[in-house]
Design a protein around this nucleic acid. Sequence first.
DNA 1: ATGGTTTTCGGAAACGTTTCCGGAGAATAA
DNA 2: TTATTCTCCGGAAACGTTTCCGAAAACCAT
Lengths: 338, 338
Amino acid sequence: MKHITIKDVAKKLNCSVSTISRAFNDKYDIRKETREHILATAKEMGYSPNPIAKSLLKQCSNQIGVVIPEFINAFFPEVIIGIQEVLIKKGYQVLIMQSNESHITELENVKTLENNMVDGMIISLSLGTKNVDYYKYLISRGFPLVLFNRVSNELETSKVLFDDYKWAFFATEHLIYQGYVKIVHFSGPSGLVISQNRKNGFLDALRKHKIPFDESSIIETGFMISDGEREMEKLINENNLPEAILAVNDPTAIGAMKTLKKHGYKVPYDVALVGFTETKLAELIDPPLTSVAQPTHEIGKTAARLLLEQIESNGIFVPQTVILNGRLNIRESSMKLK
Amino acid sequence: MKHITIKDVAKKLNCSVSTISRAFNDKYDIRKETREHILATAKEMGYSPNPIAKSLLKQCSNQIGVVIPEFINAFFPEVIIGIQEVLIKKGYQVLIMQSNESHITELENVKTLENNMVDGMIISLSLGTKNVDYYKYLISRGFPLVLFNRVSNELETSKVLFDDYKWAFFATEHLIYQGYVKIVHFSGPSGLVISQNRKNGFLDALRKHKIPFDESSIIETGFMISDGEREMEKLINENNLPEAILAVNDPTAIGAMKTLKKHGYKVPYDVALVGFTETKLAELIDPPLTSVAQPTHEIGKTAARLLLEQIESNGIFVPQTVILNGRLNIRESSMKLK
DNA sequence: ATGGTTTTCGGAAACGTTTCCGGAGAATAA
DNA sequence: TTATTCTCCGGAAACGTTTCCGAAAACCAT
């Protein structure tokens, strides 16, 4: 039950605690033999320095906080793997918390992490987050912060993004080249920058190719399979099927596909589908889903590296925005088959 | 940059730090008005007690550590959601670490969490973990520990399990009732108890129905899609296709399905498939995969509850093993179609 | 031998809390 | 009135570290 502390080691070795500390921290003012002797007996006793005490003193914890909206879709876990890959090598621990798309939970999480003296945070904002004042406050104090995926233009901090506009544009052009005309976009929640960018890419592609559209061409939805199901169900009930759908992400595309199948429609014969955010499901589902692949691991790694840069630079730091590249994986769900 | 501490509040209010502490900890020996006044100004100043200092003093942190082997398959994230659901309500934070199936990383994670004074841990052992001495040591010191899914029989601590034997038995019987005779089991790594139990369930079902089998009926593999692909590829090359396969989990079943499709075989016409651990993919894939559903959320919640019981009981605690029930979701991949 | 520098170590303060102990004053009882 | 209890609060120690300051001892140069 009782932990072995630096004092126990000092007592056993008949020396002061400061000497033990010096041995463990590779200070210059300690004799080499003394250090080795101390390290040996400490190891034998099973002593290791208490990080909590260290945090209290140093006012930092060698911990990084990560706050994500959810854990259910594969996207965020994959990003986290990338984050950990970089940070653990650097001796940081990664604390993960989920906000469940709630602004309140998100804020609580951030404050908890702050109280725990994390040295920085990597955050993807929740759906509910409109007010970013607390982040502004953190940034103004110089707190290291990196945003990814769900960001806010109001915040001047490092960001890792994906060129949503470009790839939504390409994906839409792909559908147009296939010969589809009546194309609908399942857009994400309108408050999010990624939703807006994807929507604009979609609309500009239609404009470029002079494809007519109106307000019914955009259907705002969420990010879950159930959201895709619900909207698809509505379209079927209204007997208003489009020829093709660009979905804001894979889960909504998959939801749409499930519902279409349930009602006896064939993908892509009756409705063609394109997803976004390339999850593993895309190539496993039937028919395989055309999707824009995001480099999830790379997003995580980049976010971690940007955070480290900011932590290691002492104050003099200019926020960077890194925009990563993707790929359109064309599969059966969007092919025009004659 | 500077945090507001209890001393700042004390100075502002012209009182001692102990009074502030009393106000925040709802002690009896403080006047009601004093407490309210303190709380008000503290809130106004943006003060909140530093959990690190509290941890150091109290020798506990209100944090729970979770160590899982991997983050890639959906199983563990789903369990974690269940864990958090219970613990966060109780005011605990959940620290998640992944061992990447490495015994060394796992041990490092456990020691890191221990140093961070977590009040307990919920662990699923990695594939590489043969030596459980450190866990024995923790248990002998009375450290609260709950294992789930990947457990060790050597450890006397609370466990949350699934009746792998029973459900592997049922799943195999299902295949037998469909009329399949030449049935193969893709078993998990032989070192794991879950692998053994599922294998035994499989074999006993064959025995009960007097289905002949030999050593080629069991093919040992891993837990990933790629493992299923590899073993299926081998079977195809050997021109030695079984009529049906019971896979140790969904990813290996899906890997097998992918490879079968790639080579032009039809599921279930050429080979029938049954998975295990029911991931979301099972019902989305084509053909939909018959699979044993595990109550992942419930596993997490139960593990959290058992841990809380042990933490709240002061020493006098008898480890419990909870075995949760599942369900066989029969879908197209295992049907005998005439 | 003497003065100065370097090496090596011990003592003590500090980080932000909680809690025990004791004391001042008020309230109660005799 | 005096003695006793109760209420409320301040002081100080403690948790396990790191680091600054200073001191003893050893070294070097003159």
